[in-house]
Amino acid sequence: MSSFDNFWAVYSNLILSLGINSLLALSIWLTLACGMLAIANAAFMGIGAYTASILTMNYGVPFPVAIAGGMAAPALVAFIMGKPTLRLSGVYLAMATLAFGEVVRIAILNAESLTGGALGLNGIPQSTQWWHVLLALVLVLLVLWRVRRSKVGRAFEAIKEDETAAGLMGIDVAAHKMLAFVLGGAIAGLAGTLNAHLTFFIGPGEYGFNRAVDILTMTILGGINGLTGPVLGAVILTILPEALRGLAGFRLVINGLILVLIVLFLPKGIWDPVRLRQWFGRKGDAA
């Protein structure tokens, strides 16, 4: 038992980060599954983290209430922001949401009395336990699995394939896009809340461009053809920096290289059920 305690003391944060990063990857998977390249999830994570941290530190609210607030705040911001922004598509939507992330970061820097500015917030209660992360991940996976198999999920798929054709079939494209955007923001806020109450400290630099690229890389690496892909990508890219600790300074270079290789050789990500069935089918025929 002592050996497990020692292992958990050393690697507990890394293991819990696997679950938190999986939530982040699933949050952007939701928008990608609806055909939207929106890169605001790092900003939503920051909004959720700061909202929940301020609630627990300044107002002493219970952790479950802080979690609810950390999910509701980015969801509300996503709804307000999505009204004008989701009319855009492709690279224009990516640029708009990326700019929104910078606006959030600068707002956090300037609101020193509330957010601590560049110094961030320190001394956040360590309320996140392993079962919080596990329960959150399981519930999010169940909800997204149900959504994917529902009429809403089929509408997402139709919009991703051809937005114009989906509209002609009677699908409310704007409403479904807004749903994916808001739900993705809430999941990112949940991840931010759990992370903030795990690490004691948060700062504006944690929710900028680098984090946005990390989240996108996780999802594209794993693949967007199922819920397994984002989780797999999050696990790989969370463990990789730890395994290559000496190359930590080149993390963005490694992420960029991974993206290039995936686009060239595995355009649908590592988890591609069709490709895997074909591969195993050839193996079976050869046997």
Rank of each mutant, 00 (worst) to 15 (best):
A66E: 02
G229R: 04
G185I: 10
A286N: 06
A78K: 00
R275H: 14
T238W: 00
R87Y: 04
L88E: 04
W8C: 09
A96R: 03
G269I: 06
E157Y: 02
G223Q: 07
W271V: 15
I220K: 08
T219N: 06
A40K: 02
G116H: 11
H197V: 12
L37A: 14
L16W: 09
S22K: 03
A186T: 08
M1Q: 14
A180N: 00
G256P: 08
D285Q: 15
N210C: 00
T51N: 10
G170N: 01
V77N: 06
F250A: 15
L194T: 02
A42E: 03
L259V: 09
K160S: 11
R282E: 14
S127F: 13
K83T: 13
L76M: 14
R154E: 12
H176Y: 11
R282I: 10
P273F: 14
P64G: 04
Q129C: 00
D214M: 12
P74E: 12
F100Q: 10
F280E: 12
Y50N: 11
N21F: 08
G208A: 12
I28V: 14
P267Q: 12
A42W: 02
G153I: 08
I67V: 15
P74F: 12
S89P: 01
I236P: 05
L98C: 04
I106Q: 14
K151V: 04
G170F: 02
R105F: 03
K268V: 03
T56K: 05
P125R: 08
W8P: 08
P230K: 01
L168T: 08
K151Y: 05
R251T: 07
T31I: 09
L257N: 05
N21G: 06
G223T: 05
L261H: 01
G192Y: 01
I202N: 10
G167L: 03
G69V: 06
R105D: 04
V182K: 04
F201E: 11
M95H: 08
G185D: 13
G192H: 05
G123M: 13
Q278G: 13
Q126W: 00
P267D: 13
A175F: 07
E161Q: 14
A73S: 10
I239K: 00
F44Q: 04
I159Y: 05
E157T: 09
P125S: 10
E102V: 11
L141P: 01
A180Y: 05
L232V: 15
W8Q: 13
L198S: 15
P74T: 13
V253G: 14
L266G: 02
I171H: 01
A287D: 13
L93H: 00
V138Y: 04
L276W: 15
A248R: 14
F4C: 07
G226W: 05
F100W: 11
F201C: 08
R282N: 09
N195M: 15
G246T: 13
G229H: 02
R275S: 15
G123Q: 12
L232D: 00
P84M: 00
G284S: 12
G189W: 06
R211V: 07
